[in-house]
């Protein structure tokens, strides 16, 4: 019986331990944020990597999300003569949900995985030990700038995604489906509040924290050479994506 309980409880123990280690990394990162030296250049470099280099992929995803949303809602709304609501539906969906979530998922795939792979490689090739031997704290030098960059840049990318998505929806709605341009825009202004956009950006910042924290945690806890780096990368993408969806539900429930 005890053996069975040990066997059955092992995943639970692992889960609790893993959560504890991730929280400890977060606390440690927060404490290192307020201690000198402040390496602004390293943070800007990460902001470029997380933000600037993700703009194209986020724009493409955002544009096609807005376009397909306009197409789908148009066919549904036409059944009861509600075509005029296509613009506001696209804008509301983009700002509240699809903008932040799809941006976070794309950045997880592009940046979260790269963080896990880069830090994982540094771990298995002793580069993180080398930092320690040179009296440089790896959490302050490697983890903290990545987390700050992701928290700051995700909202920026989400604004771009929201905007491009609405423009994509406008293009499909007005140019292809012949919805009146004035009505399309007026309904957006009528229905979408600034709060919708703002809450979406808070979500995005939170998703930025999740994907960077998980990416860094999986990276610095990598063991086992190239195979370990591959495993850490996959795990970081899967875990971050799942946590983004779960936290999205709870954030939505609290905020809207």
């Amino acid at each position: 019986m005890i053996r069975f309980l040990e066997f059955a409880g092992r995943p639970l123990v692992f889960f609790v331990e893993e959560c504890g280690r991730i929280m400890l990394l977060l606390l440690s990162t927060i404490s290192w944020m307020f201690r000198p030296p402040f390496r602004i250049r390293v943070i800007f470099k990460q902001m470029e990597f997380v933000g600037v280099n993700s703009v194209i992929v986020v724009m493409i995803t955002g544009a096609f999300t807005g376009m397909v949303l306009a197409l789908q809602t148009y066919h549904g709304f036409r059944m009861f003569g509600g075509e005029s609501l296509v613009g506001s539906t696209v804008a509301l969906s983009m700002t509240r949900e699809l903008g932040p979530v799809f941006t976070a998922l794309m950045v997880t795939g592009r940046v979260g995985s790269a963080m896990a792979a880069e830090l994982g490689t540094m771990k298995v090739t002793e580069q993180i030990d080398a930092l320690n031997t040179m009296s440089v704290n790896p959490i302050q030098y490697l983890v903290m700038p990545r987390i700050i960059a992701a928290i700051l840049m995700l909202p920026v990318l989400t604004i771009i995604s929201d905007f491009v998505g609405i423009v994509g929806g406008y293009f499909v709605g007005v140019n292809l489906l012949k919805i009146n341009s004035g009505i399309f825009i007026a309904k957006i202004i009528d229905i979408v509040d600034l709060e919708d956009i703002f809450n979406g950006l808070i979500k995005a910042a939170f998703f930025g924290l999740i994907l960077s924290l998980i990416g860094c945690y999986k990276g610095i806890s990598t063991i086992g050479g190239a195979e370990g780096v591959g495993r850490a990368t996959t795990q970081s993408v899967v875990l971050s994506s799942v946590l983004i969806f779960i936290s999205d539900y709870f954030l939505t429930a609290v905020m809207f």
Partner: peptide
């Protein structure tokens, strides 16, 4: 100062 087995230079 420390020299690691594979040098551990920053890639």
């Amino acid at each position: 100062g420390m020299l690691f087995q594979d040098a551990a230079l920053f890639d």
